[in-house]
Each structure stands twice: as structure tokens, then as C-alpha cells.
């Protein structure tokens, strides 16, 4: 039921009305209860779902909201993962860090920040480059990060890989699937709230203006250089934070994990879910990640099924599955007419 909005606070509220609140509480309750209902290896998959949701939300801010393309997002995930791991290793013994609750919250932030720095670097060419030319710069960035990691053992452990210490909160070790699950999904909820609010702020409106027409945006006073670079930085921050969580969940990093296919999968999540909507990115990430893990039994047929689904969604519903959902909702609301 639609109700009349009477005050500005109502307009700005993220969750409106009793039904939405009930749904949200139910959802959060279900999310909190899930790891107690499922066997450990399903919780492990849910952790990956959460990580990919974070990457997809960040990528969507760049691709869906600002209209820039990144085919090298896995590079940011890798930078975040390795930066966080080095931070954890370096500060494990430090008293100051332990007093602040252990390195693990900070590691997520450090991972994001390190990736954001590189996001700025990759974002700078974006000021001059368009479409396919930007695509290849980001593609090259992703490939270069992987090659450098392979050939720089001091940073990455080379092809032997690098083992990640288990996260700890004070003296409480958070190694189990369940505790990692709460860590990952707390970050997911926090970062999606940030994304919701960011897209509603003047920053989000500037992003959308750039996407729809960068020249028009510039004319109306949007600083293109600043906002394009900012979009890359924010997007990279999400990817880096997800990388830090990936390091915790895998407890092992190896450069070949960060390959071109992953970048394409991330993009597919955003596009299949629905460009330019945060729930779309979430839904795409959840669906495609579950598909990937769920189809281990399909064995060599997985790429065909996966690719087929992507093509079908694109051919039938270019607005993504979330766009289809909105249409269905609209249709149901107006049904008898």
C-alpha cells in the first residue's frame, strides 16, 4: 500500500512503513540465524557470497552509477587482500593494535584504503579515456597486478602463496566459519548502508550526472576530474575491503586466484542483477556466486550454463533481474487494470 509522504524525514528514511520494518527485522534475524542452521561448508559459501556482494556494490557505484568500466577489478581485490595480510602479520604482536580490538577491523579498512590509492591511480587516465580505451587500461591494470604478484615473492609469497593469520578480537580467535560469517556480513550491511546513503547524497547525484552525460554534468558545475577519480577510489575501496575479508576466509592467498575471469564474473554480477541499483548488485552477486558453487556437480558443463544464463538475462532483460522484479511488482500493484 502506498502512503502519503508528509514530512521530509519520511522522504529521507531508508526503511518506511511497518511492513518494511517487519521484513527487515525478519531478514536480519534470518541472516543472524543462518550459520546455526546450516552445515559449515554452506556457511563458507555464504562468506564468499558476502564478499562478492561487497565487490559488486562497489563495482556498481563505478559502472552503474558513474558509467565508467573496469575490467580489472580483481586487481583491487588482490591489493586489498595482500595489504590486509601484511598489516595483520606486522601488527599481530603490537599492543596498541590489540588494545583497539585486534588488527581485524583495521585490516578491512587498510585493505580498502590501499586499494583506494590504486583506484585513484587507475582513475586518473579515466579523465581522458572513454569506453573501450578505458576498458583496456583497467584490463591491463588487472593483468599487471597479477603478474607483479607472481614475480614479487617478497610481497605475495610468489607461487608458494601466503598463509593468513586467523583474525582475533582481543584474545578471542575468530577462525570458525560462524565468527567469520558475522564479520563478513556485518561489513556487508555496513557498507551497503554507506552505499545507499552515498547514492542519495550530492556525490551520488554527481555520479549519475556523469553517467548520463559527462559534458552536461560539467556544464552544470560537476567537477569531472574529482568525481570520476572519486568513483574509482570508492569502488576500489569496496573491492579492497572485500579482498581483506577474502584473505580471512581463505586463510591463504595465491596470485592466480586473482585472474581476468574473476573481473568478468564481477561485472556479470552487476549486469545480471541490474545496473545502477544497489539491490540489483546484491542480488546478482548472491545469484551468480551460489550458481558457481552450486554447480560443482555439473562439472564441465558449468561454463556453458553460466554463460548461457548471462546471455539469456541480457537478451531478455537488459535492466537486469532486479529491473524485472520491479516490473513484476508494478504489474501486481496495478493488476486489475
Amino acid at each position: 500500500m502506498t502512503q502519503l509522504i508528509q514530512r521530509y524525514e519520511e522522504e529521507m528514511a531508508l526503511v518506511r512503513g511497518g511492513a518494511a520494518w517487519t521484513g527487515l527485522v525478519l531478514l536480519l534475524g534470518a541472516l543472524a540465524a543462518l550459520p546455526w542452521l546450516l552445515p559449515g561448508y554452506y556457511v563458507y559459501i555464504l562468506n564468499f557470497v558476502g564478499i562478492n556482494v561487497i565487490v559488486a556494490i562497489g563495482l556498481n557505484l563505478l559502472v552503474g552509477y558513474t558509467g565508467q568500466i573496469s575490467l580489472g577489478h580483481v586487481g583491487f581485490v588482490a591489493i586489498g587482500a595482500y595489504a590486509a595480510t601484511h598489516f595483520i602479520r606486522a601488527t599481530e604482536a603490537s599492543g596498541v593494535v590489540a588494545a583497539l580490538g585486534g588488527p581485524f577491523w583495521m585490516a578491512v579498512f587498510i585493505g580498502g584504503a590501499a586499494a583506494a590509492v590504486f583506484g585513484v591511480l587507475v582513475g586518473l587516465p579515466a579523465i581522458r579515456l572513454e569506453g573501450p580505451y578505458l576498458t583496456i587500461v583497467t584490463l591491463g591494470f588487472g593483468l599487471a597486478v597479477q603478474q607483479i604478484l607472481i614475480n614479487w615473492p617478497a610481497v605475495s609469497g610468489g607461487r608458494i602463496g601466503m598463509f593468513v593469520p586467523q583474525p582475533a578480537l582481543g584474545s578471542f580467535v575468530l577462525g570458525s566459519d560462524r565468527s567469520l560469517y558475522y564479520l563478513v556480513w556485518t561489513v556487508v550491511i555496513g557498507m551497503s548502508l554507506v552505499a545507499f546513503n552515498l547514492t542519495r547524497s550530492h556525490v551520488g547525484r554527481a555520479f549519475i550526472a556523469i553517467r548520463d552525460s559527462d559534458i552536461a554534468a560539467e556544464v552544470t558545475g560537476v567537477n569531472l576530474k574529482y568525481y570520476k577519480t572519486l568513483a574509482f577510489a570508492v569502488s576500489a575501496f569496496y573491492a579492497g575491503a572485500a579482498g581483506a575479508l577474502l584473505a580471512y576466509v581463505m586463510q591463504y592467498l595465491e596470485p592466480t586466484m586473482f585472474n581476468l575471469y574473476e573481473s568478468i564474473y564481477y561485472l556479470a554480477m552487476v549486469v545480471v542483477g541490474g545496473l545502477g541499483t544497489i539491490p540489483g548488485a546484491m542480488f546478482g552477486a548472491v545469484l551468480l556466486t551460489l550458481l558457481q558453487y552450486g554447480l560443482s556437480h555439473a562439472q564441465e558443463y558449468l561454463p556453458v550454463i553460466y554463460g548461457g544464463i548471462v546471455i539469456l538475462v541480457m537478451a531478455l532483460e537488459p535492466m537486469g533481474l532486479y529491473g524485472r522484479w520491479l516490473k513484476i511488482k508494478l504489474w501486481m500493484k496495478t493488476w486489475p487494470m
Partner: peptide, 26 residues
């Protein structure tokens, strides 16, 4: 999907690439 953006087309053709690569293995 002619109306799709550059990105939409990249994803569509990348999906096709997955199908072709997978079909070749099968």
C-alpha cells in the same frame, strides 16, 4: 540486445565466450 550499453555488450559477448569455451571442452 542492440540497445544495450557498451558494458552490456561486453558482458553478452563474454557470456558467449564462456559458452563457446565450455562447449569446446564438452
Amino acid at each position: 540486445v542492440k540497445e544495450a550499453t557498451l558494458l552490456g555488450q561486453i558482458i553478452t559477448t563474454a557470456g558467449f565466450a564462456l559458452v563457446l569455451g565450455g562447449a569446446a571442452v564438452v
